[in-house]
C-alpha cells in the first residue's frame, strides 16, 4: 500500500514537472504584464490583441506554419502511400535497400538534415523559401507515412486484389475499391503524424527558409527570443495550442477506444 502511494506520488511529481511550465504560461496569459511573473490583474487583453491580428509577425508565422504543414503532409501522404504499395510488391533485397535509406531521415538529427538540405539547395542554386521548406518537410515526413501504411498492407489478404482483378475490376478500380479501404487508417495516421512533425519542426525549417523573411511559429519564437523579450501574445497562443492539442488527443483516443471496444465485442459475439 505504501509502495503504491509512493509510486503514484512519484508519477505525479514527474507530471507536475512536465506541466509546470505550461501551467505558468497559461495562468500568465490572463494578465497583461509585458514581463512574465508580474501579475497586473486579470485581463483577456493578450487574447484580444492576438485575435485582432495587430501582431502581424505572429499572425503571418501561424499562417505559414499551417500552409507548410498541410502541403507537406498531403504530399508526404501521397508519395509515401504509393511508395509503400510499390515497396510491398518488391523483392526482399530491393526492399531492404529502400528501407535502409528510408530510415536515414528518421535517424538523422534535425540539424544534419537541415544542413545537408541547405547545402543541396546552395549547390543547385535554388532560391530558398516556401518550396524548399515544404520539400524539406516532405523529406522527413514521408518515411513515417511509409512506416504507417506498410503494416496495413502486410495485414491485408494479398488474394483480395487478385480476386478483384479476376472479377473484372480494372487495376485502378481494384486500387480504389479494394486496397485503399484497407490502408486508409494507415494513411490517416501517416498524415496526422506528418502534420504534427511539420508543425513541430525548427532546425530543418531554420536552415531551408532562406532570407526572404519566411518565418514559421518555431523560427519566429527563436528570432524573438534572440532579440530578447518575447511578446506577450505568445503566451495566449501557446495556451490555445495546448488546449487544441489536448482536445485533439482526447478525440483520437476516444475514437480508438470505441474502435477497439467495437472490435472486441465483435470478436466476442463470434
Amino acid at each position: 500500500m505504501i509502495g503504491k502511494i509512493f509510486s503514484r506520488g512519484y508519477l505525479l511529481l514527474l507530471l507536475a514537472m512536465l506541466y509546470a511550465p505550461i501551467v505558468v504560461i497559461a495562468v500568465f496569459s490572463f494578465t497583461e504584464a509585458k514581463v512574465l511573473g508580474n501579475w497586473t490583474g486579470f485581463s483577456t487583453g493578450i487574447y484580444e490583441s492576438l485575435f485582432s491580428g495587430k501582431n502581424v509577425l505572429i499572425m503571418r508565422s501561424i499562417e505559414n506554419t499551417l500552409i507548410i504543414a498541410v502541403a507537406a503532409a498531403a504530399i508526404a501522404t501521397l508519395l509515401g502511400t504509393i511508395a509503400a504499395i510499390g515497396i510491398y510488391n518488391m523483392r526482399h533485397r530491393q526492399r531492404r535497400i529502400i528501407s535502409f535509406v528510408n530510415n536515414i531521415p528518421m535517424l538523422n538529427p534535425d540539424i544534419i538534415t537541415g544542413v545537408s538540405l541547405f547545402i543541396l539547395f546552395v549547390f543547385m542554386g535554388v532560391t530558398q523559401g516556401y518550396t524548399t521548406v515544404t520539400l524539406a518537410h516532405v523529406t522527413f515526413c514521408t518515411p513515417y507515412v511509409v512506416l504507417s501504411v506498410m503494416p496495413r498492407l502486410m495485414q491485408m489478404n494479398p488474394n483480395i486484389y487478385e480476386a478483384a482483378l479476376d472479377l473484372g475490376a480494372t487495376p485502378f478500380q481494384a486500387l480504389r475499391r479494394v486496397i485503399m479501404p484497407e490502408i486508409r487508417s494507415g494513411m490517416i495516421s501517416g498524415f496526422i503524424l506528418s502534420f504534427t512533425l511539420s508543425i513541430d519542426d525548427f532546425a530543418v525549417t531554420y536552415f531551408t527558409k532562406g532570407s526572404i523573411g519566411l518565418e514559421t511559429i518555431s523560427t519566429q519564437i527563436y528570432a524573438d527570443s534572440r532579440k530578447g523579450g518575447l511578446s506577450p501574445e505568445w503566451r495566449a497562443l501557446s495556451t490555445i495550442i495546448f488546449l487544441a492539442v489536448l482536445l485533439l488527443l482526447l478525440i483520437i483516443n476516444y475514437r480508438s477506444m470505441k474502435h477497439t471496444h467495437a472490435k472486441h465485442s465483435a470478436v466476442r459475439s463470434k
Binding site: 508519477l11 514527474l14 507530471l15 512536465l18 506541466y19 509546470a20 511550465p21 505550461i22 505558468v24 504560461i25 500568465f28 512574465l36 511573473g37 504534427t196 508543425i199 513541430d200 525548427f202 511559429i217 518555431s218 519564437i221 527563436y222 527570443s225 518575447l230 505568445w234 503566451r235 501557446s238 495550442i241 495546448f242 492539442v245 489536448l246 488527443l249 483516443n253
Partner: peptide
C-alpha cells in the same frame, strides 16, 4: 491515461515548451 499525460506535452512545439521553461525559471 498516464502515458497520454506524459506524451501530451510532446505534441506542443518544442520552442514553445522551451519558452515555457525559460518563463518558469524567470517566474
Amino acid at each position: 491515461i498516464v502515458i497520454m499525460l506524459f506524451i501530451l506535452p510532446m505534441w506542443i512545439n518544442m520552442l514553445i515548451r522551451t519558452m515555457a521553461t525559460v518563463t518558469l525559471f524567470d517566474f
